[in-house]
Design a protein around this nucleic acid. Structure first.
Lengths: 217, 217
DNA sequence: CGTCCCATCACCCTCTTGGTGGATCACCAG
DNA sequence: CTGGTGATCCACCAAGAGGGTGATGGGACG
């Protein structure tokens, strides 16, 4: 049996979600809450397997409630429930360690499937959410990384050495010491880098190095 | 009608997947392929909405096939199908722009749901895959972003204005013009930022701003 | 062998940065 | 009301960075 607490400020939504979930005999809605602070209390009192939290709630929103729950009862899986698929929410929810992200517009079967998947220790993302995550994962980072890499291909090996240190925020003097050359040499390299990449200053070069994944730390 | 090409080296798997998918009247399997190279040819010849590719295939694996398809026919959505949820595969598949990642162990209904979601222009990740993506997403990048955000919380609003421009590689003079203050004012803000964040120069500040997600471009 | 490119260094000049002190204003607590 | 605190603003000065030119030596390549 999957024990679940449901939190949403709208009673209609709670009723709807509850009626959908209870069509699955494996799922039991053990309690409900109408705002974030109540949700935290109710979840900690009932210790369900899953907490299904609306993002927009009075007093304490779903994300903040999720953070508190993750901190105090990490064994309880948090699933975010929302009308909106805003990038910002998605990123923040995933950062807090939410195990799922469901859209209210979703198919009832999807709701059950998501809850079941999370109960199995997996994670579930509504398709449109998955889309955003993938974009941020690959498109967001990878494509800029690719283009940045291509631009950096125009540089000589030594210039790349210098650039990677510039990207770490080192001064020319530091770089000179680190590479066992004179400061003048470093300046030549930096000038060459800026010229080749058509940049105005070392900060832009540093950002490019960073985007290209030249910097690990 | 969703037109789909199915590629897997095992005929049994193809038969199974086909029988599952054709229970949905909206889905039509227009062709099949038994290896990656054949898959690319068949997909390009048939121009389906979706290409469902096994990862492990002879001659050309699913990932390489996906890359070729993304390069030559980006409008065709690629969904990876696999027995394994290896992190490495997941990352590579997402990097190529795959719109879905399904496990063969999945529920038949999930298979249909995933195909439908992808046909709608969304993306679908099997729960165990979603789990891995979330871990890589939050663990890999987000945690640094969180800590960076916390450090930035020590700054005043005005300092954040300045920092975001520093992070874009602007000079103090540029920033002064953009914020309608004197260059001297910008310098003192920058100094305050460096002091508060215990940094040595603006490049490090720029990187921090970048890590905190203060910079969009 | 000559040519090209890379890496190295030096010198000079200008502009940018970073550090410091100080002014003004708003807010808040005693 | 008053003193403290912090944010925002500004000017001055020393140090660093950016940009130009030129010069040396060493590989690579035809």
């Amino acid at each position: 049996m999957i024990r679940l607490v449901l939190a949403d400020d709208e009673a209609m939504i709670r009723a709807g979600v509850r009626s959908i979930l209870t069509t699955d005999p494996e799922i039991e809605v053990v309690a409900e809450a109408a705002d974030g602070r109540e949700a935290v209390d109710v979840v900690l009192a009932n210790r369900p397997d899953i907490a299904l939290l609306d993002i927009r709630m009075p007093r304490l929103d779903g994300l903040a409630a999720a953070e508190q729950l993750r901190a105090t009862a990490p064994e309880i899986a948090v699933v975010m429930l929302t009308t909106f698929d805003e990038d910002e929410y998605v990123a923040r929810a995933l950062a807090t360690g939410a195990a799922g992200f469901l859209l209210k517009a979703a198919d009832p079967r999807e709701l059950i499937m998501g809850v079941r998947a999370v109960a199995d220790g997996a994670a579930y993302l509504s398709p449109r959410i998955a889309q955003k995550v993938i974009v941020q994962f690959s498109g967001g980072r990878m494509s800029r990384q690719e283009t940045a890499r291509k631009e950096l291909a125009a540089l000589t090996p030594r210039e790349l050495d210098v650039l990677s240190l510039v990207g770490r925020g080192r001064s020319n003097q530091d770089i000179a010491r680190e590479l066992f050359v004179s400061e003048g040499t470093v300046k030549s390299h930096v000038s060459a880098i800026l010229l080749r990449l058509r940049l105005n200053n070392r900060v832009q070069a540093a950002i490019l190095a960073y985007e290209a994944g030249l910097i690990d730390s």
